[in-house]
Amino acid sequence: MSLYERLYDESEQANVRFIGFISEHGRYDFGIVYTRMFFGKPLVVCMQTGRSSLLALDDLENLDDLQRLYNLRSLTEAEEVSVFLRNNLPALTLEAEAESG
Rank of each mutant, 00 (worst) to 15 (best):
V45L: 14
R6G: 02
S11Y: 08
Q48P: 11
N87L: 06
N87M: 11
Y34N: 05
E24K: 15
D58W: 15
Y28R: 04
Q67F: 03
E95F: 01
P90W: 08
E61D: 08
E95G: 03
L43Q: 13
L89S: 04
T49N: 08
L85R: 06
S11L: 12
I22M: 11
R86L: 13
A14E: 15
N71D: 15
T93Y: 05
L55C: 07
S2Y: 06
L66W: 04
L66C: 07
G101Y: 01
D65V: 02
E10W: 04
R17N: 03
F21N: 05
L55A: 05
Y28W: 05
E80V: 01
N88G: 04
L7W: 06
E99P: 03
V45Y: 07
L3H: 11
D64V: 05
S53F: 01
S100Y: 09
S53G: 12
E79F: 04
N62M: 04
R6S: 14
S82V: 06
E10A: 04
L43W: 09
T49I: 11
L55Q: 00
E97M: 14
P90I: 09
S74V: 01
M37L: 14
T49S: 15
L69N: 09
F30N: 06
Q13M: 02
N88A: 01
L3I: 00
C46M: 07
L94H: 04
E61R: 11
N87D: 12
S82A: 15
Y4E: 11
M37S: 10
R27W: 07
V16G: 00
V44W: 08
L55K: 03
L89C: 01
V16T: 14
E12N: 05
E95A: 13
M37T: 10
G40E: 02
A98I: 09
A78I: 10
D58N: 12
E80D: 10
F39G: 06
F38T: 08
P42V: 06
E12W: 00
T35D: 09
F84G: 03
L3M: 08
M47H: 08
L3Q: 06
G101N: 11
R51V: 03
A98L: 09
R27Y: 04
R36V: 06
D9C: 10
R36P: 08
A96D: 15
N87Q: 13
E80H: 06
S2M: 09
N15H: 12
D65K: 14
F18C: 11
M1S: 14
E80F: 07
A98E: 15
C46A: 15
A91Q: 11
D59G: 07
F39R: 10
L69G: 00
T93C: 09
V33N: 00
N87T: 01
I19Y: 00
Y34A: 07
L57M: 06
R86C: 12
